[in-house]
Design a protein around this nucleic acid. Structure first.
Lengths: 219, 219
DNA sequence: ATTCAATACGAGCAAAAGCTCATATAAAAT
DNA sequence: ATTTTATATGAGCTTTTGCTCGTATTGAAT
């Protein structure tokens, strides 16, 4: 009946020594997940692989889920890096360019550590909405909404919230699944190209001229 | 190291009595998952709720995952019902109509037992590609591909496989997540309308005139 | 030097949960 | 009737695994 416990570090490391300990633990966790999957992800195994005692692990993580949460948080933070820069750069570009940049940024994100990304989102059991996760999702939603609002006149979808929902879901999951199922199209840019076209024509109600590319000749 | 065991019933029930036993077990499994979540889904609990002994459960399911697999298989089979009929009905309708019918059918599917659907796909740990799952996915992919090929001239996307991938992923996940995050738009038809528009304009490269609807006045 | 806090250690506990197996009963076959 | 097969039972075994806690060591502060 009782559900999962909180999920934040029990004690913040103060000295460099312990910060290093936390790092090797998190790294070992990632390595085990990527190499052997979630079933092999036991706290004892993580401690062993990290070369620290199980006691040390529990000094910084109150429970297994907290370790998982921290690993996911770090991974997400990595992905988020560069978003600010990208958004700023595309601040007053036309809608189509913003979409293209966002899609391509998302693609790049998924190519950083695809194996970890895959195991985290497909194999790891849902931890129930984490605090930082909700915050992250909200930041993203607001960014997209703001971008849409700034170009409201170009957008034909009556319900902006719905548009934001559809666009974010689509971009995220289509690209995400492509990591394992369409990695070639992901790397070649073909997927980004088509997704961009789809989103732009959905939002503006007008077709987007194909970018200069091999596939452009097909009509 | 050793991964999950197979996942098919250990023994096929022969008499009506035992078929009934299997049914009450699967039903109890579904009830527990929906009501108390995956953490409460233990074989002992399922047997208890079903009113049979734990021994009986293991007479028909070699392990826990087999029970889960069977539950998912039955649920998916329910969802698949009516697809054939729909496909046949829309056999030579224009592309836009086929897409609209498919999207709306998918929406209806997700409204059958949303709670079970949600817990199965969000909370239950991935069981690794099941045999019947792969077969199901392939049937769907082929159906969509065939429909696209029959209308190849209307479709501007050069890579048909990629188009199939993008469309299926988009429809499935956007609608699926809407069950919990946008249930109102799902029921009102607003989501189906927008998704249909998006898919059609993606495939044809031409905007789709909005259907008569409240939202159509918005421009 | 000495004190004290931070860090590290790891044997082993406790609880959970999947699953077995010896036994009993109901139905079918003979 | 008797044998055989199918079905049902549930106490408890086995294993796994998350996690504690008493102890040891390292480093900072005085």
């Amino acid at each position: 009946m009782a559900k999962k416990k909180p999920a934040s570090p029990r004690k913040m490391p103060e000295q460099d020594r312990s910060r290093a300990t936390v790092d090797v633990i998190v790294d070992a966790a990632a390595r085990i997940l990527v190499k052997d999957g979630y079933d092999a992800f036991t706290t004892n195994r993580v401690a062993e692989k990290a070369g620290v005692s199980i006691g040390s692990l529990y000094q910084y993580f109150p429970n297994k889920d907290a370790l998982l949460s921290e690993l996911m948080r770090r991974h997400t933070t990595d992905l988020e890096k560069g978003i600010e820069a990208m958004v700023a750069r595309a601040a007053d570009a036309p809608l189509a360019e913003v979409i293209r940049a966002a899609v391509e940024h998302n693609v790049q994100s998924h190519l950083i550590d695809p194996a970890l990304h895959r195991v985290l989102s497909e194999e790891v059991p849902r931890l129930g909405k984490l605090d930082w996760q909700a915050a992250f999702a909200e930041r993203m939603t607001h960014r997209v909404r703001a971008a849409f609002e700034a170009r409201r006149s170009e957008i034909v979808v009556p319900d902006l919230d719905l548009a934001v929902y559809i666009v974010t879901r689509t971009v995220e999951t289509v690209i995400h699944n492509a990591v394992t199922q369409r990695s070639h199209d992901l790397k070649s840019g073909a997927l980004a190209e088509e997704v961009t076209r789809m989103i732009v024509s959905f939002l503006t109600g007008k077709p987007l001229a194909a970018k200069r590319s091999v596939r452009a000749a097909a009509e």
